[in-house]
């Protein structure tokens, strides 16, 4: 069914092309600097194209650390496992919360929402993880990140919006809640599940602080982000304790801009590939059509 292009379509297309240019710029800038000679980069003025092309920055990163490949695998594993467990946990809990007749609905809902705004701080959390014996154990990547209140609430609000006639008829057919959840609700929720999967995967992929805090004693558990962080070591300086002597040491630790940019590219490109894969779940009408057939 071919439709005529209206002025609206043309303006919109131009606008979106503009959005692409504007949002692509920082990334191209990083890519260009990462492929540019480190000394030359100091002169500034590099935009989207390297001036003195080189792969030396990447070589330096891969050359400086022989754990990178292993760390990369661990990052994939924690991302995959963390995403799957996270999805299962969030959808289950979200479903129970979407059932307004559920006896614990209000209590659990409040319990969950409050966790978004309260936190005990680093020391108590560290002590908890330590007392649970999770230090240097793979589960430290999965358990503490199992649920995020935000994700659960997003899924639940999506579920709230689903047409419920199907659910009712299944109930009449004698299906129990678990069957309704897995056979009816889950397929209907694919767009939101894809979204949350993306959020979870990105969170898992990007986290390095938990590796540092809880797993640096076990080399097998090291992750890509953590290894890159160690190379980057962008000595995060708060103005308080600077003086000429320690500042010199800190300055000596910082890497040329080109290396930082190359690290950014290595750290982000793998996770960027996830989105296009999930994109097909965002097609309008897919879910309802599937249910109806």
């Amino acid at each position: 069914m071919k439709k005529k292009w209206t002025v609206f379509d043309i303006v919109l297309t131009i606008f979106m092309a503009f959005v692409i240019v504007v949002t692509l710029y920082p990334f191209l800038n990083i890519l260009a600097i990462s492929l540019n000679d480190a000394v030359d980069t100091a002169r500034g003025g590099i935009h989207i194209w390297p001036r003195e092309f080189t792969l030396a920055n990447y070589q330096e990163i891969f050359g400086s650390n022989d754990l990178l490949f292993q760390a990369f695998l661990m990052s994939i594993i924690r991302t995959v496992v963390g995403t799957i467990t996270g999805i299962i946990a969030s959808t289950m809990l979200a479903y129970t919360l979407s059932r307004k007749d559920f006896v614990l609905n209000g209590f659990v809902g409040l319990l969950l929402v409050l966790t978004m705004f309260i936190s005990g701080g680093l020391i108590p959390e560290y002590m908890l993880i330590r007392n649970l014996g999770l230090i240097n154990d793979f589960s430290v990547y999965i358990l503490p990140m199992l649920l995020t209140a935000f994700n659960v609430i997003v899924i639940r609000s999506f579920m709230d919006n689903l047409p419920v006639a199907l659910e009712e008829s299944a109930k009449i057919d004698g299906a129990n809640d678990f069957v309704i959840f897995s056979k009816i609700i889950i397929p209907l929720c694919m767009p939101v599940i894809a979204t949350i999967a993306l959020f979870l995967a990105v969170a898992q992929w990007n986290s390095w602080f938990d590796t540092y805090l809880y797993a640096r004693g076990n080399e097998a558990l090291t992750t890509l982000q953590f290894e890159l962080m160690k190379i980057l070591d962008n000595a995060n300086i708060s103005s308080g304790d600077i003086n000429s002597q320690n500042a010199e040491v800190i300055a000596g630790k910082t890497n040329p801009q080109s290396i930082k940019m190359a690290i950014t590219i290595i750290a982000t490109v793998p996770i960027l590939l996830v989105y296009p894969f999930l994109q097909k779940y965002f097609v309008t009408g897919l879910t309802l059509g599937a249910v109806k057939s």
Partner: peptide
């Protein structure tokens, strides 16, 4: 790593 300045307090607490 990453300029973390809580390493010593965590060391002491644990």
């Amino acid at each position: 790593v990453g300029g973390n300045d809580e390493a010593i307090p965590l060391m002491i607490a644990s």
